[in-house]
């Protein structure tokens, strides 16, 4: 067990060092995620006219939480996989006594180590600009929100990995991931708190993973109404689903791999 932990730790440390080299790029990547703050601004204007049930502070809190939740959930393993398949780099990874999926996971976890301090920086700026929005969610909600964010990362990662595996057949599968990404963009609660969505849309979305990926952790942190039990169960189920699908495709897909460039 200790031996395994040491191995995992080394792998993560290697990728952390690698990502540290590209901190500037990660910073700009993070900045490109600031769109929720624009939605915050627009909804605040709407709130100023008394149009919605939430007030300006609620929106500031919620959209900051959305920003954090999205940053924690960012994945790119579909891109790694497509790249490795097309360039033939996957051949080398297959020679090692380690499932490449672990390498990709370490890549993501190591990157979070670089992203978190930068995220704290944005948090400080936000706290300075909107001190009235700061509120302690309480340990329970904070922990539940973190759990939801971790599970959401799991779903994102497994789904992205599944799409990446499709590139064993299609060579370039990044376009498929964009379909998933677009759905997340519009139905995860980034545009507005989910309770402002039309009723039928809300009811339909409960059965998809999308609202739980961003809205659930964000609502838990910012004090909006959230059905934590159902959301967490749903996230767990989607994790299992994409994990199983990923294992299946990995078994089938390896036979399809043509080792380009070798």
């Amino acid at each position: 067990m200790r031996w395994l932990l040491r191995k995992a730790w080394t792998l993560v440390a290697v990728y952390f060092a690698y990502m540290l080299e590209y901190r500037g790029e990660i910073f700009f990547w993070m900045l490109s995620g600031i769109t929720p703050f624009f939605f915050m601004s627009a909804w605040t204007v709407a709130a100023g006219r008394g149009l919605t049930v939430y007030g300006a502070d609620d929106y500031a809190r919620y959209f900051f939480a959305v920003f954090v939740a999205r940053q924690l959930g960012i994945v790119w393993v579909h891109w790694n996989m497509s790249e490795d398949v097309r360039s033939g780099k996957l051949s080398f990874r297959l020679l090692q006594p380690l499932d490449p999926a672990w390498r990709y996971l370490a890549d993501h976890v190591g990157e979070r180590g670089v992203r978190l301090p930068l995220l704290a920086l944005v948090g400080l700026v936000f706290a300075w600009l909107y001190p009235q929005a700061l509120v302690w969610p309480g340990p329970g909600r904070l922990a539940l929100g973190l759990l939801a964010a971790a599970l959401a990362f799991g779903v994102n990662f497994s789904a992205s990995y599944v799409v990446g595996l499709l590139s064993l057949w299609l060579e370039d599968a990044t376009e498929i991931y964009n379909l998933w990404y677009v759905a997340v963009l519009f139905f995860s609660g980034m545009l507005a708190p989910l309770s402002l969505y039309p009723e039928p849309v809300q009811r339909a979305l409960v059965w998809t993973p999308f609202p739980h990926l961003v809205y659930l952790p964000a609502a838990l942190w910012s004090g909006l109404e959230a059905d934590a039990a159902r959301g967490l169960l749903s996230l767990l189920a989607w994790n299992l689903f994409f994990f199983a699908l990923g294992r299946l495709l990995w078994r089938l897909g390896r036979r399809h791999y043509s080792a380009m460039g070798a």
Partner: peptide, 29 residues
């Protein structure tokens, strides 16, 4: 395949963007 999928993606994204505008108007803004 990527090209064909892009059609689907473009349609989906347009629908999502329209939905975004609709959200504001349906809330009276």
């Amino acid at each position: 395949t990527a090209f064909l999928l892009a059609f689907l993606e473009a349609a989906l994204e347009a629908a999502g963007k329209l939905f975004g505008v609709y959200l504001f108007y349906s809330n009276g803004f």
